[in-house]
Structure formats: structure tokens, C-alpha cells
């Protein structure tokens, strides 16, 4: 590996370096996030055409879909960081992993909530045990399990490693859970609600959706960075540089 890249990689593993450097990234990331989210939401809610069948109620899609995407992506971020932490014992990876858990849980909850709000006008009820809803609910349970575990140990180091193991076991289980829930649903699918394959979206609706999805990615990165910075301060509170910082 070229020495410059390897040096950068090693630096990234240092909480102190990350804390100071990320402070410079934060404003740019925040501006980008706000710009994308405002553009996408205004475009989607105000200017995208009405849906032929659902009217205006479909517009919650501009929040619902990005939240669902990031909820799932977030689990893989958490598990990926957990794997790096377990294999290479990199402190930063541990802190990213533990910071990803509440963020992922919040996004999963948002996806479920917007889904319920959307279900009321479309299906006539807030909650339907359909395959995707059920999978998201199980994903929420997985996140909450990791969070509960993370709070249970006296020593942070133990909590990090325990959470890393559970999120890794979760990662290999998620495809199985998704497939089995999918199969379960086809078995029990109620006659009143029929899913036909989603019609392809018109570009005038797809474009704002892509913008809000990008915005959610930036939002995720931003909040993950903030959470990780808080975790660094908590973990390194006895280090000299943190004590100097806090004075």
C-alpha cells in the first residue's frame, strides 16, 4: 500500500485525529444535507405530479422510502463496523458501530411510522401484517436488542465487543429472516389486500425521490458523525486531549 494511504488509514483509526478532522467536515456535510433534503422535499411535496390512483397521499413516499433504505443500510454499516472492530481491534470502528445502533433504530421506527400513516388512506388501516412491515418490525427488534445489550455492561470495551458479535450474527440472519417472512406472507396473504408488482415510477416522481434518498444518506452520515464524536468524548474522557478540550 502506498505510504500516504496507509498513513491516512492509520490516522483514521485515531479517535483524536477523527474528532479534530471531522469538525472541519461537519459544516459542509450539514449544508449538503439541508440543501438536498429541502430541495427534495419541496420538489416532492409541491411540484411532483399527483398520483393517478392515490392522489396526494402517495407523497409520503419521499420520506418513507429513504427512511426504509437507510434503516437497512444502517444495519450493514453497524455490522460492518462491528466486524472491523472484532477483526482488527480498531477503536474507532467500535465507536462507529455503537453510534449506528440508535440512529438505525430511529430510522426503522420512522419507516414503520410513515408506513402506517400511508397505509391508512391506501389500505384503510394503520397496521397490516404484510411481509415488508413484519420484516421492518423484526429489524427494529434487532436494533433494540443491540441497544439494550450496549447499555448492560459496566465496561464500555465489553459492551462494544458484545454488540459487535450480536450485530454480526444478525447480519447473517437478516436474509434468512427476510426470505422466511416473505414466504410466510405468501402463505397467509389475506384476500382483501393484493399486491401487484409496483408500477415503474414516472421520472417526474422518481427524481425528487432520488434527491431525498441522497439527502437521507448525507443525513445519516452527519448524525453518525455527531454520535461518534459524542461517543469519543465519553470513551476518551480521561485522555489528556479531551480534558484540555473540555476545560
Amino acid at each position: 500500500m502506498p505510504s500516504a494511504i496507509s498513513r491516512w488509514f492509520h490516522r483514521l483509526g485515531s479517535p483524536r485525529w477523527f474528532y479534530h478532522t471531522s469538525r472541519r467536515w461537519l459544516p459542509w456535510l450539514a449544508i449538503l444535507t439541508i440543501a438536498l433534503l429541502v430541495t427534495g422535499v419541496v420538489w416532492g411535496l409541491g411540484f411532483a405530479p399527483q398520483d393517478a390512483r392515490q392522489g396526494n397521499s402517495y407523497r409520503i413516499i419521499f420520506i418513507h422510502v429513504p427512511a426504509s433504505v437507510l434503516a437497512l443500510v444502517g444495519y450493514y454499516v453497524m455490522a460492518g463496523a462491528g466486524a472491523i472492530a472484532l477483526i482488527w481491534r480498531i477503536k474507532m470502528a467500535e465507536m462507529v458501530m455503537i453510534s449506528a445502533a440508535p440512529l438505525g433504530a430511529a430510522l426503522t421506527f420512522l419507516a414503520l411510522l410513515t408506513g402506517a400513516v400511508w397505509a391508512k388512506p391506501t389500505w384503510g388501516t394503520y397496521w397490516v401484517w404484510d411481509a415488508r412491515t413484519t420484516s421492518m418490525l423484526i429489524l427494529l427488534f434487532l436494533y433494540l436488542g443491540v441497544m439494550a445489550l450496549g447499555k448492560s455492561y459496566a465496561a464500555r470495551e465489553v459492551a462494544y465487543r458484545a454488540c459487535a458479535i450480536v450485530s454480526l450474527v444478525g447480519t447473517v440472519n437478516i436474509p434468512i429472516i427476510y426470505k422466511s417472512v416473505d414466504w410466510w406472507y405468501t402463505l397467509h396473504q389475506p384476500a382483501t389486500i393484493k399486491f401487484t408488482s409496483a408500477p415503474s415510477m414516472h421520472p417526474s416522481m422518481l427524481q425528487p425521490l432520488l434527491v431525498t434518498t441522497l439527502g437521507f444518506y448525507c443525513f445519516y452520515a452527519l448524525v453518525l458523525m455527531l454520535n461518534t464524536r459524542a461517543e469519543i468524548i465519553g470513551r476518551e474522557r480521561r485522555a489528556v486531549w479531551v480534558r484540555e478540550l473540555l476545560q
Binding site: 436488542g145 439494550a148 444478525g170 429472516i177 422466511s180 414466504w183
Partner: peptide
């Protein structure tokens, strides 16, 4: 805590077993 962590992993077993 053990139940909270482990139960989500049991969904596939429950689905196949009851089926």
C-alpha cells in the same frame, strides 16, 4: 436481556415449524 437479543433470530424457526 438474553430473550431480547435472541428472539428476533427465532422468527424463521417459528415460521417453518408452525407451517
Amino acid at each position: 436481556l438474553l430473550s431480547l437479543i435472541v428472539m428476533p433470530f427465532y422468527f424463521p424457526v417459528l415460521i417453518f415449524g408452525t407451517s
